[in-house]
Design a protein around this nucleic acid. Structure first.
Lengths: 226, 226
DNA sequence: CGCGTCCTTGAGAGTTGTCAACTCCAGTGG
DNA sequence: CCACTGGAGTTGACAACTCTCAAGGACGCG
């Protein structure tokens, strides 16, 4: 099970066997505990001590930040295989919630650190993971700072498609509200933009949570950066 | 020299002696080479092979991304002590430029990786650095996704003040254009917002590149999250 | 079948962007 | 010494994109 989810994770696929990671990953697995959460359940809360790391086994997790007046921003969606809650702060500045029903593994941070001290392969993997996270974050900052609403939505659809290895039918497990808070828009703007893309023939929306890519080229063009 | 700059770097100060990092840092220093760049000179370019990591010794560096139509976003400013160019991608998706005259150290990535394989303390430090970078990036994403122009500018001033350990007089080495591209605004909006803050008595602007914090409380209030 | 939640669509408002003129200042050369 | 020049910054008027507010539709669930 673990190997399967680990293999489905990578944006930059590395052969587990080749890196000699397998033993380390098994060791990691041994210190983890399995937990399930229902839709919208809180996995950890803003202000909690950040004593654990998490990894998604099944389902989708969102990490959120709130402003006192209610404005919300979603720092990220985490899919099967992804680690989350791994920022370097002693306490949480965001909360993590289940988008649908999810299964996660929880690893005590201290135990991971101990493992990493003696397992260079695991240490390298953790490092790579963090650096990949940095690259992703820069991509998102660019989107939030300089892209228009249609560009953001197009980028988002393509991002999910790539993350989940889908060519035509892309599942969006999250609500429009989640998408809006992820892209720095409002639900109305997201909805309108999707409708416009549908009318333009770039996508179809067979159900609320499914996007079908009709004209990928025009989406990539709209996204600004493919 | 190295120890001094390393000591001036941390947002989360860790005693170098206590972590036993000193030897590793010296080893790191040995594989680095020193380089100087003039104002606006390019340190690395979009598309270059990401074979090296960099650290600022003196001055300020900006990392930029460009859209074909000319829109620019500044992914980050890097001050003395900061590492930059450490994302996990094989080639650069951004360029790095000197804001003023700068001195940087360049470290071959492979050599760093080799060092990290055998030095758990260095490996841990690199990991911490990456995780801190992730936390910073989340803060920035929140700013770009959900904060208003005045909130962004106030947050920026406070961020620079904290980064450079200043209480009242904060130096902004970068141009208004740089600030705008960092905050996802236009120079006009940045300029107007600074003028409004000045008129409101929150700050003074003795010179173009200097901000004096008159009423820090109102700035923190305006920033939304202090 | 009714209710609630999520989504869509419309109309109008507001923040921020665009375009343009003006100021300020450093550097240069008459 | 002063005029000229160019870049950076400021300010104003207007436009536009996105948000806000509001109503109406779709769908699932009791």
């Amino acid at each position: 099970m673990f190997v399967a989810t680990a293999a489905s994770a990578p944006s930059r696929p590395t052969s587990i066997a080749a890196t000699g990671l397998l033993d380390e990953l098994v060791a990691l697995e041994r210190i983890g505990t399995r937990h399930t959460f229902q839709r919208n359940a809180e996995i950890f809360a803003d202000g909690d001590a950040a004593t654990d790391w998490f990894r998604v086994v099944a389902g989708t997790v969102r990490t959120c930040r709130l402003l006192p007046d209610g404005r919300r921003h979603i720092a990220g969606f985490h899919y099967a295989g992804d680690f989350f809650g791994i920022e370097g702060l002693p306490s949480r500045v965001s909360s993590a919630e289940a988008v649908g029903d999810v299964v996660v593994m929880r690893y005590p941070r201290k135990a991971i650190e101990r493992l990493a001290e003696t397992n260079p392969a695991l240490a390298r993997r953790l490092r790579e993971m963090a650096f990949e996270g940095l690259a992703d974050a820069q991509e998102r900052m660019f989107l939030l700072g300089r892209k228009t609403a249609p560009e953001r939505v197009a980028s988002f659809i393509l991002e999910v498609a790539q993350r989940c290895n889908r060519q035509r039918k892309v599942e969006l497990p999250m609500s429009r509200y989640d998408i809006a808070d992820y892209l720095g828009l409002t639900i109305e703007t997201v909805s309108r933009t999707l409708s416009a893309m549908k009318k333009a023939g770039a996508i179809a929306l067979p159900t609320i949570h499914l996007v079908e890519l009709i004209d990928r080229g025009s989406l990539e063009l709209a996204a600004g950066t493919a």
